[in-house]
């Protein structure tokens, strides 16, 4: 699995922009480099609502985590974390006044390095460097075993990340293996680029990202829904991020609400 085309760079070269740092840039963060910011600008040209897309995706993450907290889940695996800046999972749970344990997973070395620095004093969160497409390594990693209790429900977060996996990576298989490892009562929160609603914009995004270390593979509503096989989707099902349990009417109207599908499923 490590020999495949790789959606995260093997090199440590910060001259090659990465999706994690572009995302950070779009969210107004400072954990990025010139090359990332340049790609970010190209991204904005292709998709003028890119900042909103990023913001809405981040907002979905927050609402999804709060929903899972409400369902009694106290431990999370965040796959493809990127850089855990403002509004990362452990911050959300801390703001909610819950002591939760969080395992962050990313394979991009700079993101991992940043994360380790950010998390070094937090005993309840850890960043492990692994390819999320390798469930055995993620689930068997000492950090995972130390922080998580597999007899209690776990929140599995695949937010804005599976669109970097191409069909040959068999992402549905990967999700299935994670699901099998999770105890009953666990939840999957997932968001994913789609070309269903704004095909022209998405075509340009794919084009821009093709030159980067992280090409994008948007999926249809049916394909995204298929990731929830074996889960029971909670209301409102798989919808645009802005439409998933919005907190304010304005979220729904915001441009960029349609580029990413989001959903939360419950493992019976």
């Amino acid at each position: 699995m490590t020999a495949r085309t790789g959606w995260l760079p093997r090199s440590l070269d910060e001259e090659v922009p990465t999706a994690a740092r572009v995302y950070d840039y779009l969210l107004g963060g400072a954990h990025n480099f010139v090359a990332d910011r340049r790609l970010g600008e190209r991204f904005l040209t292709a998709l003028p609502s890119a900042r909103d897309v990023a913001r809405l995706n981040r907002g979905f993450l927050r609402r999804a985590v709060l929903t899972l907290l409400g369902a009694g889940i106290r431990q999370f695996v965040d796959l493809g974390t990127g850089i855990p800046t403002a509004g990362s999972v452990h911050e959300i749970t801390e703001r909610a006044g819950r002591g939760c344990r969080v395992v962050y997973v990313d394979r991009e070395p700079v993101a991992v390095a940043h994360s380790e620095l950010l998390l070094r004093n937090d005993p309840h969160a850890a960043m492990l460097r692994a390819d999320l497409l390798d469930p055995d390594r993620v689930l068997g990693h000492p950090y995972t075993r130390r922080l998580l209790d597999f007899s209690e429900p776990i929140g599995l977060l695949l937010v804005g990340v599976l669109h970097f996996a191409f069909p040959q990576d068999r992402p549905e298989e990967v999700v299935r293996r994670y699901r099998e490892a999770l105890p009953s009562g666990s939840c999957l929160a997932l968001s994913h680029f789609t070309a269903d609603l704004a095909p022209e914009n998405m075509r340009q995004v794919v084009e821009v990202m093709r030159g980067s270390a992280n090409p994008v593979y948007p999926r249809s509503h049916a394909e995204v829904s298929a990731f929830f096989d074996g889960f029971e989707l909670v209301e409102p099902g798989v919808v645009g991020t802005g439409l998933w349990r919005p907190e304010h009417a304005e979220d729904v109207r915001t441009p960029g609400a349609e580029q990413i599908y989001a959903g939360v499923g419950y493992k019976p």
């Binding site: 969210l27 909103d52 913001r55 981040r58 403002a86 911050e91 703001r95 907190e247 304010h248 304005e250």
Partner: peptide, 15 residues
């Protein structure tokens, strides 16, 4: 508040 959330990501609820 309503305007801010459209210019940036504020990691908290609208309220």
């Amino acid at each position: 508040a309503g305007g801010l959330v459209r210019t940036c990501y504020v990691p908290m609820s609208r309220g």
